[in-house]
């Protein structure tokens, strides 16, 4: 069977299929997909990929560990080799720090267009059209492939924007081992400094607790971290908090930070500037805690608490300790 779609699938550092890859796979299973994985595909991965709709599963064998660390050049060339030898119309990936970085390199390699950060796929037979947010989510637009690409369109899907399809069409799950066509890279990473935190990146977190200017200083973020630990949440910040030096830029949610779509977003001491709302408005549920009853954040909140975060957050943490055990 000839599939139109290839999906770059990522494993997490425990060797399991990443949630965002499951979201992409299960939603596209109705049209039939092949999958490419860089790294080892064990029998449980293979079974799971098959149940998520994968037909061919390309496992890129890397005996000299060229791709053991991420390499923009290496990843782009490895996936380009699969694309070159096939007739895919679309190559998908969940939007991660890797796909966001190297997919455009593939795009330029083949003179094919790419569509980033898609939040909706419309499937009409073998025709696919997309929608994506613009201006950090202040509006959206449909994006139509004009079918004049020399090679496939490259598409990245925003994490948590497509719910996992609970009953995907099962694929054939045929494992195809592929050897790398190259044995050296022009440039590669020289050193990696791992973050101490094991927490999920904000863009993939299911729950986010963010603090704003009202946090008053960096140390007070410990109240948010204590609450986050009870929920398995990641901690974010508003631009005001980042610019005041209370939080690192990697924590910033909003138009000049990260755009997030968690299941639950808890905004503490954040008034809700338009550029902040743009970055978190697609969260499934929003809780706002703020002393100003007229703060714009309340217009987006499902549950608002008008009050001082320094009183509300510690009590919330206690309630969670008591009830989530």
């Amino acid at each position: 069977m000839n599939n139109n779609i290839l999906i770059f699938t990522e494993l997490n550092h425990h060797g399991e299929i990443r949630d965002v890859s499951k979201q992409v796979l299960s939603n596209l299973s109705v049209v039939g997909t092949d999958v490419v994985v860089i790294g080892k595909v064990n029998s449980s991965n293979q079974e799971q990929l098959k149940n998520l709709g994968a037909n061919k599963i390309y496992a890129i064998d890397d005996p000299s560990n060229l791709l053991a660390n991420y390499s923009p050049e290496g990843f782009a060339r490895a996936i380009s080799d699969i694309i070159k030898n096939n007739t895919y119309k679309f190559v998908f990936a969940g939007l991660t720090s890797k796909s966001r970085d190297f997919f455009p390199i593939i795009s330029a390699t083949f003179k094919s267009a790419m569509i980033s950060d898609v939040t909706k796929i419309d499937i009409d037979g073998s025709n696919l059209t997309f929608a994506r947010p613009l201006f950090a989510g202040k509006c959206l637009a449909n994006v139509i492939p004009l079918d004049n690409n020399p090679k496939p369109y490259l598409i990245t899907i925003r994490p948590n924007s497509l719910p996992v399809n609970p009953s995907p069409r099962v694929g054939t799950g045929e494992l195809v081992n592929v050897s790398l066509s190259f044995n050296q890279l022009r440039y590669k990473v020289n050193e990696i400094i791992k973050s101490a935190s094991e927490k999920l990146d904000l863009t993939e977190a299911k729950i986010i607790i963010s603090g704003g200017r009202a946090m008053k200083n960096a140390e007070n973020f410990k109240f948010l971290h204590e609450m986050a630990n009870q929920l398995g949440a990641s901690v974010g910040a508003s631009r005001a908090a980042v610019d005041s030096g209370y939080a690192h830029h990697s924590m910033q949610v909003g138009q000049t930070g990260k755009t997030v779509s968690p299941e639950l977003y808890i905004a503490c001491g954040i008034s809700g500037a338009i550029q902040h709302l743009a970055g978190m408005r697609t969260s499934k549920y929003i809780v706002a805690i703020n002393t100003d009853a007229h703060a714009p954040i309340f217009s987006k909140a499902d549950y608002g608490i008008v009050g001082d975060l320094f009183q509300v957050v510690p009590i919330f943490t206690e309630v969670l300790k008591a009830k989530c055990r």
Binding site: S112, A113, I115, P133, L134, G137, K138, C139, L140, A141, N142, V143, I144, P145, L146, N148, N149, Y153, R281, T282, I286, A293, F298, S299, K300, A301, D302, Y303, G304, I305, V306
Partner: peptide, 18 residues
């Protein structure tokens, strides 16, 4: 290679509980 069509605003949320 691609075309943007039909710009639209995200749906407004129903007012929440406060």
């Amino acid at each position: 290679r691609i075309e943007y069509r039909n710009f639209y605003h995200p749906p407004e949320k129903a007012p929440g509980k406060k």
